[in-house]
Amino acid sequence: MKKMESFDFPVGRRLAGKYIIQEKLGSGWEGEVYQVQEIHTNIVRAAKLFYPHRNIKFKRSTRFAKKLDLLADCSMVMNYHTQEIIKVKGQDIVCIICEFIEGEMLSKILDRQRGKRLPDFQALHLLYALAKGIESIHLYGEYHGDLHTDNIIVRRYGLGFDIKVIDLHHWGDSKKDNREEDIIKMIRVFYDALGGEKFYKKQPAAVKSIIKGLKRSLILKEFKTASLLRWHIENLDWEDGN
Results as ranks from 00 to 15, higher is better:
Phe161Gly: 08
Lys164Glu: 07
Ser75His: 13
Gly90Phe: 06
Met78Ile: 09
Ile97Ser: 04
Asp73Ser: 08
Leu127Phe: 06
Glu99Ile: 08
Lys164Ala: 09
Ile85Gln: 15
Val94Ala: 10
Lys164Met: 11
Phe100Trp: 04
Lys89Gln: 15
Lys57Tyr: 10
Ser174Asn: 00
Ile109Gly: 08
Pro119Ala: 03
Tyr143Ser: 01
Lys116Ile: 11
Arg156Glu: 14
Lys66Leu: 01
Leu126Ser: 03
Lys175Glu: 01
Tyr143Pro: 01
Ala131Tyr: 01
Leu127Cys: 06
Tyr157Lys: 13
Ile85Cys: 13
Thr149His: 06
Thr149Gln: 13
Phe121Ala: 15
Tyr80Met: 01
Ala72Met: 07
Asp92Phe: 09
Gly145Glu: 00
Gly160Trp: 12
Gln83Tyr: 09
Asp92Cys: 08
Leu118His: 00
Leu126His: 07
Leu124Cys: 09
Ser174Lys: 02
Leu106Phe: 08
His170Gln: 05
Ile85Val: 14
Gly158Ala: 14
His144Phe: 06
Ser136Tyr: 07
Phe58Asp: 13
Trp171Arg: 11
Asp173Val: 08
Leu147Met: 08
Asp162Asn: 12
Gln122Lys: 15
Val154Phe: 00
Lys116Ser: 15
Glu102Met: 00
Asn151Lys: 04
Leu139Ile: 05
Ile152Val: 14
His125Cys: 12
Asp167His: 03
Ile93His: 03
Ser136Cys: 09
Gln91Ala: 07
Phe64His: 03
Trp171Val: 09
Asp173Gly: 10
Arg112Leu: 11
Cys95Arg: 05
Arg156Leu: 10
Cys74Val: 09
Gly145Trp: 00
Tyr140Ile: 02
Cys98Arg: 06
Ser107Asp: 15
Trp171Cys: 08
Leu70Gly: 07
Ser75Trp: 11
Ser75Pro: 11
Asp173Arg: 09
Ile101Arg: 10
Ser75Gln: 14
Ile101Asp: 03
Lys176Met: 04
His144Gln: 08
Ile109Tyr: 10
Gly145Gln: 02
Val154Ala: 03
His125Asn: 15
Ile101Phe: 11
Phe58Gly: 04
Glu142Ile: 00
Lys57Ala: 14
Asp173Pro: 02
Gly158Val: 13
His81Trp: 13
Lys59Thr: 14
Asp120Met: 08
Leu159Asp: 15
Leu124Pro: 05
Lys176Ile: 09
Leu110Ser: 00
Asp177Trp: 02
Lys132Arg: 12
Ser75Glu: 15
Leu126Asn: 02
Lys57Glu: 12
Cys95Thr: 12
Glu99Asn: 12
Arg114Trp: 13
Arg60Asp: 13
Ile101Lys: 13
His81Lys: 11
Ile134Lys: 00
Leu147Glu: 03
Asp146Trp: 02
Lys59Trp: 09
